[in-house]
Write a protein that binds this DNA or RNA. Sequence first.
DNA 1: AGGAAATTGAAATTCATTTTCATTTAACGT
DNA 2: ACGTTAAATGAAAATGAATTTCAATTTCCT
Lengths: 155, 155
Amino acid sequence: MPQTKGGNTIDRKEKLKAFLKQRGFKSTRQRDIIADEFLKSGEHITAEEMYKKVSRKHRDIGFTTVYRTLKLLAKSGLATERVFADNLTRYEPLSAEDHHDHLICINCGSITEFEDLKLERLQEKIAGEFGFRIVTHKMEFYGYCNVCGERQRKK
Amino acid sequence: MPQTKGGNTIDRKEKLKAFLKQRGFKSTRQRDIIADEFLKSGEHITAEEMYKKVSRKHRDIGFTTVYRTLKLLAKSGLATERVFADNLTRYEPLSAEDHHDHLICINCGSITEFEDLKLERLQEKIAGEFGFRIVTHKMEFYGYCNVCGERQRKK
DNA sequence: AGGAAATTGAAATTCATTTTCATTTAACGT
DNA sequence: ACGTTAAATGAAAATGAATTTCAATTTCCT
């Protein structure tokens, strides 16, 4: 049973339901299915990819609904929206505590996450020097992952 | 006389001409005008903004040419293309040595540059731990600048 | 000057994202 | 359960920045 960082899928689905109820929104079959697939699958997935995945089993669920549900998950705090250099919007399951950055391979497209406390502190320090208060940040490294770097050297 | 980091405007225009010639491209009136305006003006400007600025004095220069010239400047190494959270492509004059990051105010939209050697080293170190070789990186802080932060506290 | 090749600019196209709108569905009170 | 109301759905249309097309123009080289 894969235990994700932000609590298990059931916990998270409860969180979604609570969010919906609180805002007077409705809990629907489609949202359930999409949230489920997303929470258990999903690293850095686009709306298009998510739609393909969902619509395989559920032909009646349209792209728009998938798209809107991912936005909803982001608003409810269960997902983060990210845009990397390819300019596609991707979503990934999110837990409140965890805020990581990304290593993106420009050869194979793999996305690796990392977290570094020293980095966080240094960022705060730098911002502080400018009297700047950070709300969010974006930090991505683009280059060759360990696999593609090796391969490149051999050529 | 404003002296920019990457050499003066004339130097840079020579660099552009050399680039064009080397590639068998042509030096045109439009490219001259656009490069000129861009190099002396330009922090983080969009193609649209650049077009407005240029077309005020030169009604005959079209958006497409401005757009293409900015891309050309990027390819020739005189400009960097950047996309911030608003998803607009911006261009800024670039010198080879200087690679800085950005503080972006989510209230007033101001963009401040900074450079930090410690940060660079830490980035390399982190990437190294993953066997990752950085080619480029993207690092942006979003939050409140010193002006907007103050104002917010007063409210 | 002459001719090949690149450039220009208006308009059209692309493509992800977002909105519209008629229909369906969930939630709530009776 | 039933009706009402507001939200959700999904297909299609709209949006908007980025990019491409193409005929006309300009540059570069000999």
